[in-house]
Each structure stands twice: as structure tokens, then as C-alpha cells.
């Protein structure tokens, strides 16, 4: 078991950056900057870009937070910093 707090912090930062890239891509990317491109595609009655802006990005945020929280629990254990 590693105990280095620096290593724990670096792993945390890597995870946060990864999550924030996804966060940016779905909301600002698919929902705003590339919305016209994605609007060419139709899923059911939704234009895809419109769907990202009003539904998809919110669902992605939700998955991201739970993913982060669960991954961090694993890191807490791996680096021996888990609270009782």
C-alpha cells in the first residue's frame, strides 16, 4: 500500500482533469460550440445538439460526479487515507 500524500494528490488531480475535460466537452462542446454540427443528427424527435444542451449534458454531469466519488473512494483506500 502506498502512503504518499503527494501521490494521492497527483492521482486526484489527474482524475479531476479527466472529468473536467468530459464536463467541458458535453456542455460547451456538444451543447454550444458544435451545436449546429450535432443538430444535423436526429434522435427520435430530438436534434442531437439541442438534446445535449437541454438534457444530455445534465445526465452526463450526474454520471461524472458519481464516477468521481466512487473512484476517489478507491484512491482513499489505495493510499491509506480513508476515514473511519
Amino acid at each position: 500500500m502506498e502512503t504518499s500524500k503527494d501521490a494521492y494528490w497527483k492521482a486526484n488531480i489527474r482524475l479531476v482533469i479527466g472529468c473536467l475535460i468530459v464536463w467541458f466537452t458535453v456542455s460547451f462542446g456538444c451543447g454550444i460550440l458544435l451545436v449546429n454540427f450535432f443538430n444535423q443528427f436526429q434522435v427520435g424527435g430530438y436534434k442531437l445538439g439541442f438534446w445535449f444542451a437541454q438534457q444530455g449534458s445534465i445526465f452526463t454531469f450526474l454520471v461524472l460526479i458519481f464516477f468521481y466519488a466512487i473512484r476517489m473512494n478507491t484512491l482513499d483506500r489505495k493510499y491509506g487515507v480513508r476515514e473511519d
Binding site: W23, S27, G31, F50, A53, S57, F61, I65
Partner: peptide, 20 residues
């Protein structure tokens, strides 16, 4: 469509809150 800025803005903040 522009209503999406409120929807994304008022939910996306929770990602920042949870991680930062």
C-alpha cells in the same frame, strides 16, 4: 434552445463543487 444555458449553468456547477 438558449434556455439550455440556464439548464447547463445551474447543474454544471455541481461538478465543480464536487471535485474542486
Amino acid at each position: 434552445y438558449e434556455g439550455g444555458m440556464y439548464l447547463m449553468g445551474w447543474t454544471g456547477g455541481y461538478v465543480l463543487l464536487a471535485m474542486l
